[in-house]
């Protein structure tokens, strides 16, 4: 790359695809085959009538690489729309995590206190464990996980990032 020294930036890309078998493999195969990063990837059907799914990808690369990624995605036949939320204006992004903490005594109390500060909900409880549900930006989830580590954190399950543009316009 002539511009290999360019700064690498993180981008959140929304992709609207036909909800058909193999479409996710095409997207993931494109990233692995061409050596692009996937920091997070989420997918679910968003329009049952039109049979459309929405994929949200967080990736990083130089300006040229990000442009390549978007153009390569647009080449895929079942891909209808590719939008770079990071450069197309303000957007909100959220991640949900389920976090299991196993501890007793003071640690257990501290875990609950911190969960309260993060507005995490306890959605499962035993005498020696909690499962917390925390929703927020990736950084917030990261921070919560870090704080739970010394308090008996034993299991983490995260959805990856979903994102949507602010304002009245659709994708």
């Amino acid at each position: 790359m002539t511009n290999a020294v360019q700064d690498s930036n993180r981008h959140t890309i929304s992709v609207l695809v036909d909800n058909e078998s193999g479409v996710l493999a095409r997207v993931i195969g494109l990233f692995s085959g061409r050596g692009y990063n996937i920091e997070s990837l989420t997918v679910a059907e968003v329009d049952a009538r039109e049979n459309l799914s929405r994929i949200t990808i967080v990736t990083s690369g130089t300006r040229m690489i990000i442009e390549q990624i978007k153009n390569q995605l647009r080449r895929l036949v079942p891909v209808h729309k590719v939008h770079d939320l990071t450069i197309e204006g303000p957007h909100v992004s959220r991640e949900l995590a389920l976090i299991k903490v196993a501890s007793t005594g003071e640690k257990r109390v501290e875990a609950l206190r911190i969960a309260d500060i993060f507005r995490a909900r306890a959605i499962d409880s035993t005498n020696e464990s909690f499962v917390f549900e925390v929703v927020g930006a990736t950084e917030k989830v990261d921070a919560f996980v870090t704080l739970m580590q010394p308090l008996g954190l034993i299991d983490v399950s995260r959805t990856g990032v979903v994102a949507i543009a602010r304002g009245p316009k659709a994708l």
Partner: peptide
């Protein structure tokens, strides 16, 4: 005709 060919190797 292929947008992904543009700015791939050479800006």
């Amino acid at each position: 005709i292929d947008p992904s060919s543009i700015n791939k190797n050479v800006a």
